[in-house]
């Protein structure tokens, strides 16, 4: 073995704990990981639904799609450790050279398989999202036990609130005004400038915080279900559905909404 001839970075190994994100969808990165130990889930985000595209195990490779489709370097899906995982990180340069020297017929076949996999992933994501929506539709109107005897109303209020993207840093906190609230969600008016800070799109999930007129705090997660221009120029009206709320917040809100 000659020394110094190969100046490429060495192959390194990394360990991940169950639940750790190995690759984040949308990120830039072209490293390739070979799984040595453990299982890895591949996920794609479609609106508000996360679709599991595949489960990979030892011997299989993660990140090959970005490597092969080098034109666009954003990760097309996330990879998460499903248990304790060890991977070998291949620097793309090392492989790129070998790839270039590969018989053209195999490059052709690899690109064909990649193209079809991209199509199948899109189809899978679409079908999953549709199924998810059908499930939600079927679940609507179902009342949680204990709440059935009580009636909750949508109340009009005018209270400031704070919100930020679910995975965003805490300093990206935006404000707006809640105009109505129910146990299901809120209607709020925000400055259209806010939409330049992060995309305000249907399905986008946010953390929100507000103080009700009775002084009680509400904290939870909600997703944007509608966006429309407000009557006042420069403002947009957001429809937000609660997706998660602490038990305490739910109780406070329930109390506030009681007729």
């Amino acid at each position: 073995m000659s020394h110094g001839k190969d100046s490429l970075p060495p192959i390194i190994r990394l360990q991940y704990r169950s639940g750790d994100l190995i690759i984040k969808e949308g990120d830039y990165g072209i490293s390739i990981y070979k799984i040595l130990r453990g299982r890895v889930g591949i996920y794609s985000q479609s609106g508000d639904t996360e679709v599991k595209l595949a489960t990979l195990g030892p011997g299989q490779v993660v990140g090959e799609m970005t490597f092969l489709g080098r034109a666009k370097e954003r990760r097309s899906a996330s990879a998460r450790a499903l248990e304790d995982v060890e991977v070998e990180v291949w620097h793309p340069e090392r492989l790129a050279r070998e790839y270039e020297e590969m018989p053209p017929i195999l490059k052709y076949i690899a690109n064909q398989a990649l193209k079809r996999l991209v199509r199948m992933n899109k189809l899978l994501t679409k079908l999953s999202a549709r199924k998810e929506a059908a499930k939600r539709e079927a679940g609507r109107g179902r009342v949680e036990p204990g709440e059935s005897q009580r009636q909750f109303y949508r109340k009009e209020i005018d209270r400031p609130f704070e919100y930020r993207p679910l995975d965003g840093p805490s300093h990206v906190t935006l404000t707006g005004q809640v105009k109505d609230i129910s146990l299901g969600g809120v209607g709020a008016v925000v400055s259209s400038r806010n939409t330049k800070v992060f995309p305000h799109e249907r399905g986008e999930e946010v953390r929100l915080h507000l103080v009700l007129p009775d002084g009680k705090e509400i904290e939870g997660r909600a997703k944007i279900v509608s966006i429309r221009r407000d009557k006042t120029p420069g403002r947009v009206f957001l429809g937000l559905n609660f997706t998660d709320m602490t038990y305490e917040s739910k109780k406070r809100l329930g109390f506030f909404l009681m007729p």
């Binding site: 490779v61 090392r94 199948m120």
Partner: peptide, 27 residues
Amino acid sequence: DYESLSPQLKDLIRTLIVRLKETTARV
């Protein structure tokens, strides 16, 4: 040609084809 590839490239191509096969089955 395929057999002559480095183990890494073989892994890469095999993963791609396995994923295509499994994804197609799920779809």
